[in-house]
Structures are given as structure tokens and as C-alpha cells.
């Protein structure tokens, strides 16, 4: 059997909000080490990779590896009923046909039980090569979301360029052009809510990406105050948000290339 209890149920809510518009159905792969999920969007341009380590749950039991296939839109609707301080318990039988989600309020005064039908999803897992990225930008997640939103007014593609001085996001379209430059900056009083912008630069990078997908990724903004964007020329970029201190959600996006 599989059973896992997450004291901060709102993490699961934020994860579902982050992926439900990008991926329809996905397998939650459960093993003794935790839960992982890997899924591509329907056009095979982007990929989401979620990791929740077993030690981040206050109870975790997985007798044998199972893949629990779920419709993420249906799951997100159920998980939206989680109160912010609720604990969430996920349970499944050994074949993953039926999945139970139980939400408990902090004082134990309210318990709700939901059952979702497991789906048989035939998904191939992609091998993601481990890469030393040329440029790694860490910045406030809300700022990244805002830049994606603001540049979408101008065009559908953003050129992200890193240099020693900073990072620029530029877009152009029929209306004109827009460019937003961020310089490296220190965090304000080490305050996690006011993170600065930092760039680890092995080599400068300049690469084009579809704003539509980056905007999908920014639905993960409520998960964390910072986001990390890792890039090398000629390969997909990775946008990573931590999931509490138990794992991460990573979004990969293939670049736009010259015609």
C-alpha cells in the first residue's frame, strides 16, 4: 500500500495550481524515497519534473513502487478544497486504481475524504542529461512572473541574455519592443521575502523562448519567494522553484531556434 501525510497541505494545492494548465494527465511515481512526477505538455515543448522527498512527509509508507495516474485538472479541483493549515493524506491501493485524499484541519475538528479514480497513463520517461549550465540566475519569483506578464504585451517570444553585469529580458512585436534589465543585487537584510538577483556566470548566454510557456511556469510563483533560471546556449532552459524543503518543481523549455 501507499500512504503519505503532508502536514502543509497547501503545498500540494500550490503544486497542482502550477501544473494543471500545462499537463492534463500525469503519473505520480511513488517509491520508498518519495514521490516524483515527470510529464510533457501536449505539444512536447516543455516538461515538468516534480520531486517530493519522503522525509518531507510526517508519515510515508510505500511498500512497493507504484505509479498513480491522475487527471490533474480533477485533482486540482479537489485539492482546492484544502484549507491553508490542513494536513493532506494521500492513499492508494497497490494497483493505484483508487486514490484517496484526506484533508484534516489543524485542530482536528474537520476531516474530509475524497476519492479519485486512478488512470492508466502510458507515459514515456525522458532521460534528462545532467548539465552544468553556463548561466544560473536566481531572482525573486514575483519579479520573474511580472516580467513574463509585462513582455507578453509586446510579443510572444523573449530573448533572455546574461552577462557579467546582469540579465536582460527583451521582446519585440508589431507594436514595438520592450526590454527589462536586472542588475545583480544583494538581498535586503537577508530577508527571504526580498531576495536579490544573483547570477552565476560561466559563459554569457542569449537565447529565445516562448513567453506562453514561461508564463505557465510562473503559476508556481506562490510556492517560493525565489526562482532559479538555468541556461546554456543551444539547450532547454530550466526554471526551478523549491517545494518547501522537501524537493522542487522544475520546468524545462526547449528554445526557439533560427528558421
Amino acid at each position: 500500500m501507499f500512504e503519505a501525510r503532508l502536514p502543509q497541505g497547501d503545498l500540494l494545492k500550490k503544486i497542482l495550481e502550477a501544473v494543471k494548465d500545462l499537463v492534463t494527465d500525469a503519473n505520480f511515481d511513488c517509491s520508498s524515497t518519495g514521490i516524483s512526477l515527470q510529464a510533457m505538455d501536449s505539444s512536447h515543448v516543455s516538461l515538468v519534473s516534480l520531486l517530493m522527498r519522503a522525509d518531507g512527509f510526517d508519515h510515508f509508507r510505500c511498500d512497493r513502487n507504484i505509479s498513480i495516474g491522475l487527471n490533474l485538472l480533477a485533482m486540482s479541483k479537489v485539492v482546492r478544497c484544502v484549507g491553508n493549515n490542513d494536513a493532506v493524506t494521500m492513499k492508494a491501493d497497490d494497483n493505484g486504481d483508487l486514490v484517496t485524499l484526506m484533508f484534516e484541519s489543524q485542530d482536528g475538528s474537520k476531516v474530509s475524504d475524497w476519492q479519485l479514480r486512478g488512470l492508466d497513463i502510458d507515459s514515456e520517461r525522458l532521460g534528462i542529461p545532467s548539465t552544468d549550465y553556463s548561466s544560473v540566475v536566481t531572482m525573486p519569483s514575483a519579479e520573474f512572473a511580472r516580467i513574463c506578464r509585462d513582455l507578453s504585451v509586446i510579443g510572444d517570444t523573449v530573448v533572455i541574455t546574461t552577462t557579467k553585469e546582469g540579465v536582460t529580458f527583451a521582446s519585440k512585436g508589431e507594436l514595438g519592443t520592450g526590454k527589462i534589465a536586472l542588475r545583480q543585487s544583494a538581498a535586503i537584510d537577508d530577508d527571504a521575502d526580498s531576495p536579490g538577483v544573483s547570477i552565476e556566470l560561466q559563459e554569457p548566454v542569449s537565447q529565445s523562448f516562448a513567453l506562453r510557456y514561461l508564463s505557465f511556469f510562473t503559476k508556481a510563483t506562490p510556492l517560493a519567494p525565489t526562482v532559479t533560471i538555468s541556461m546554456s546556449n543551444g539547450v532547454p532552459l530550466v526554471v526551478e522553484y523549491p517545494v518547501g524543503d522537501m524537493g522542487h518543481i522544475r520546468f524545462y523549455l526547449a528554445p526557439k531556434v533560427e528558421d
Partner: peptide, 14 residues
Amino acid sequence: SGKQASLTSFFGAS
């Protein structure tokens, strides 16, 4: 503004 590459051309099936 460029042609969208497919992710599968970078990441092979494992």
C-alpha cells in the same frame, strides 16, 4: 521570431 524546437530532440527516452 524563431522556430519552436521540440523538447524530445534534446531529451531522449530513458
